[in-house]
Design a protein around this nucleic acid. Structure first.
Lengths: 335, 335
DNA sequence: AAAACGAAGGAAAACGTTTTCCCAAATCGG
DNA sequence: CCGATTTGGGAAAACGTTTTCCTTCGTTTT
């Protein structure tokens, strides 16, 4: 008689069991004030508990023309720092009743566009670009009503958009000061292509920092191969340095991955003593896996809250600056 | 006059523009045969392109009582190997028009339950448990119609469920054989709690392998602390070994993270020469970051396709065994 | 005592699809 | 050339919500 399938129950079942209309159930669920007496609320609550009722999101989304989904489009999930930020975002979003959909754009404009379109069709509540790349659909999205948040890298289309990240220029300067203060005088800088604002600002900061101290990095110590991911990029740049017979006393990578790649070059070349290295991002695994790499730590755990704040506020140009700090790891001199 | 807001267009707009009914549009979109003439299809196609129409998922989901969402509940996203599997899953699912929702359960039953309930309310098409843990809701889900796939770890509730992973027991035996073949005779085994089938089977395989060769690992070389994550677990176990004055010539960890933790213990204790180590999983980063760790490689890239296959088939007990192989990395003897 | 108001709650519309019935026209089999 | 089948397509129901109007009381204000 009653629909007793394995299917979960709907608001109608709850209404029937509680002896009220579905409107009332909805209002109780959503906590609308002054719309139900204490006893009614109680009865509805009990019915909900009995039937283990949970709002079906499709119905809600359809009616409200929006969903609980928040798209997080990450440039590279293989980067543990990005994965850590994504994890932080997921926790924070859930705290607000939102669901994270995570995609890896592999830094490819076409893939990013495909995801953007798909997420619009899903009526995503907001879109978080964790390392955005310039692309047509992104450009067309500027005047959409869907909140877009740029994390780490600024809006690459030239328009100003909501941004969350550290002060990269300042971080670069800090690294330069740190290097000078520690007495390094033959630093090499390996950086990724400056298409991303993060890399660009870091490079500018580093060079400015050295220049201000009267110790500029010579041109032939600044390398920027354009091949492949950051790991291979660091590898190739370092091989180039080695081929040139250069022996820097410090290698600065604009990301930790670059530093990892560089380290591999020296290892493979058979060097026993690697130059000291410093990178950016400092993933949680560094403490365990890269115990000799110093790094500029970005506060991954703080990103989640910042993202939630950014998508909650109506301001599409809000800028949230998170604080970085240099994590210096001891240098193990091998005998 | 016409609804010309920033909102995206609906099936009605397409129908109007193409001069057909919404039913026809729907059929064209979904490729229903024998329901529209070639010219009609063409007209509808053009209208769709003009309006940049994309099906609103809420409407479809509501009608079909299911969604395109596939929930992936990972036990620990900080583990690069899990992140790699998740990335592989995402790509494969997208190829089938499905959307991945990624959650981190932190190996906690309560959190896993919370996610399970949420995903059921979302009418998730399927649920992928990437490292499941025993929990009440999971148990109650046994007779649900939603496909559930267990990856890496088998169904912890005792019921048999769809499984994807390597042959862990066999992998354990392979490691034992490898160790014996390489002449190690003072191996230490550090393993996580055997609540997970993966760990359990690996341990059994390893011990059986050594025993079969007449070279069993002595009890006091088998350690299984129960504190914290795998990194700390490895650290503590290794510290214990060091405190006991033991100097194994090989450390076997049931996961790479355990090996990383163990390595840290020796480093922090000031040892210049670490014991050789072998772990399980072999994340893509190992090649760069852990160039001396040998490991049993699981084929991360193969997981995506396997997951798609598992959730497509009706068989709720399908078992997909992926092939592992030992990646041996050279041992750099430091002078 | 009348008027005004707030509280409690129901009826019904609307959201965008898919899909089941229909029906008309065209094609086919004999 | 007639009945049967196929092809092409429309009308409308249904999916599960939220929310806008109403309506009915009971209470407060004049």
């Amino acid at each position: 008689m009653t629909k007793r399938t394995a299917q979960s129950s709907s608001i109608k079942d709850v209404a029937a069991l509680a002896g009220v209309s579905i409107a009332t159930v909805s209002r109780v669920v959503n906590g609308v004030a002054n719309k139900a007496s204490a006893e009614t609320v109680e009865r509805v609550r009990k019915a909900i508990a009995t039937l283990e009722y949970r709002t079906t999101s499709a119905g809600r989304d359809l009616r409200q023309r929006t969903s609980r989904l928040v798209a997080v489009l990450a440039a590279n999930l293989a980067n543990p720092a990005m994965a850590a930020i994504a994890a932080s975002a997921e926790t924070a979003l859930r705290g607000r009743g939102l669901v994270m959909v995570l995609c890896d754009t592999h830094d490819q404009p076409e893939l990013q566009d495909e995801y953007l379109r798909e997420m619009l069709a899903q009526q995503a509540r907001a879109i978080v670009l964790l390392g955005a790349v310039e692309s047509p659909t992104l450009r067309r999205l500027q005047n959409s009503t869907t909140p877009i948040v740029f994390v780490n890298r600024r809006n690459p289309t030239g328009h100003v958009g909501s941004f969350i990240g550290i002060d990269n220029r300042r971080a670069g300067e800090d690294v330069a000061q740190w290097a000078i203060g520690r007495g390094f005088h033959k630093a090499a800088l390996i950086h990724a292509p400056t298409t991303s604002s993060a890399t660009r600002e870091r490079v500018v900061g580093i060079l400015a920092g050295f220049a201000a101290a009267g110790a500029p990095i010579p041109d032939h110590f600044v390398l920027s191969p354009n091949a492949g991911d950051h790991l291979n990029l660091g590898l190739q740049a370092a091989q180039q340095l080695i081929d040139m017979g250069q022996a820097p006393d410090l290698v600065i990578g604009t990301s930790d991955l670059i530093a990892f790649g560089a380290a591999r070059a020296w290892r493979e070349a058979g060097f026993l003593a690697l130059p000291r290295m410093i990178g950016f991002d400092d993933s949680p695994m560094n403490e365990w896996l890269a115990s000799e790499l110093s790094s500029v730590r970005i506060p991954y755990d703080a990103f989640g809250a910042a993202i939630v704040e950014a998508i909650s506020t109506a301001d599409a140009t809000s800028q949230i600056v998170l604080h970085h700090r240099i994590v210096e790891r001891p240098w193990q001199q091998r005998i």
